[in-house]
Write a protein that binds this DNA or RNA. Structure first.
Lengths: 250, 250
DNA sequence: CAGTGGTCTAGACCACACT
DNA sequence: GTGTGGTCTAGACCACTGC
């Protein structure tokens, strides 16, 4: 296997399994194996990279820990998807006060807006774009049991999402991240959220059917694809009268 | 090593490393090695349990992933603490809008109340106690740069925290969880948080120096020690005008 | 049955920290 | 140098899945 550590890396020593991980990551990014598909077996990869099975195993272990792949004993290792039931709400931490995540079935979606516009300085910065770059702006309301729960403003860089329409967003069966994966080959791997409490504006209160100035959870999310490239900015306003944001600390 | 799987476990097969993990966990809980101390080397543990070093390694790997221990190459494996700078704010996700977690130095603490009382049905349920059981109730305000940021109500089961005083809480240099560890031998390992947006009550607004009805982040935390035993209920009211709750999704 | 991931071992060697 | 955790290998066997 390659012995030389990746150039420009701070540590003077890069473990072999880490190099293998990078290679697998590159194949994933290149689309050699698509979301939902099985990747080659550990033995195959070991042969391909000329290392032992244990080394490949450790590389895949890390990818699995990061939720980039799923291991299934007896079946193989699969490229992770936003489609799977278990992770239907992988990035949605709002859960009903009684019951479990997803117990209310899929959210009812209403697309209010889907237009092409130009990135403000603020939006551009968060998406690592330049001010004025083309972006898609989407506004939608998610409801559970016919009660609106989430108002979301979404910004996407226009280039990778060329052709995205409100109809697609409204009709696709599954989370929007699954749509992005399937139709635009954009995989969201990780996201950061900044959370605040804010009073509902006049407009927000109407859309969420609450009184003006009702405190809302304001969730600003930046979602990243490979190489920590930001690919989505989402500003969500959550009603928390019947739901709450759930988080586990370790 | 023990070959029989743990009784009452659903899976008919329990891996050896998992059994070893349980044994190490028991030693940790029994206080055989205290927070901050080093545990025996992998070779020593392997000899003790009559398994290979690799098996012990995998057990410790999982404990390290759960933040119960820290591995330090060349030095040893240490029982995790709430004292360490890196994890000074292990359970505090409120960070300043500009700057990094902890960049403002330690929070200024003001203990408003520390009294012994009886658990209401609601509190008892969350702490797995019985209604009317003795609990300690603490109220405090945390400030950064002399600006109050967090109002917290804390409930602790009275028995394990017998002797806890407001003075201790006010004067202990470090997070309260470090105090609990050092003085009461109670280690908080994990916590669940439910987050909502609520309007500041009259009382809360005065203590946090904001206008009444200002939206606050309401964070209800249940912290757990070994065996998922709840040992603390904390209801925090966070100002989010200069800080935000930060979370990473994977 | 064959093929996959999962466990376990034994041994060699490397990187790091302390003395 | 000695002892620690970290890496890597080769091989054996186990558990699960699907043909």
């Amino acid at each position: 296997m390659a012995i030389s550590p990746d150039a420009l890396d701070a540590p003077s020593f890069t473990p072999l399994y880490s190099q293998i991980k990078t290679l697998i990551l590159q194949s994933l990014q290149a689309g050699e194996w698509k979301p939902g598909e099985v990747i080659p077996s550990e033995m195959d990869l070991a042969a391909r990279y000329r290392v032992s099975q244990g080394t490949v195993r450790k590389a895949i272990d890390e990818l699995a820990a990061e939720n980039l792949v799923n291991r299934r004993q007896g079946k193989g290792t699969f490229v992770a998807t936003h489609e799977e039931k278990q992770v239907q709400f992988r990035f949605l931490k709002l859960v009903p006060d009684d019951g479990k995540p997803g117990s209310e079935g899929p959210a009812e979606r209403q697309i209010l807006e889907c237009k092409k516009t130009r990135a403000s300085a603020e939006i551009a910065k968060l998406l690592s774009l330049r001010t004025g770059d083309a972006v898609l702006q989407i506004r939608r309301v998610l409801a559970f049991k016919h009660i609106p729960a989430i108002l979301e403003d979404i910004w996407l860089p226009a280039a990778p999402f060329k052709g995205l329409t409100a109809e697609q967003l409204a009709n696709y069966p599954g989370p929007s991240y699954a749509l992005f994966e399937t139709e635009f080959n954009v995989r969201m791997l990780r996201a950061d959220e900044k959370i605040r409490a804010l009073p509902a504006s006049n407009e927000q209160s109407k859309l969420l059917k609450v009184e003006q100035s009702t405190p809302l959870l304001f969730v600003e999310r930046v979602a990243y694809t490979y190489r920590d490239t930001p690919m989505e900015l989402r500003r969500g306003y959550y009603r928390t009268d019947t739901h709450h944001y759930f988080n586990t600390l370790n």
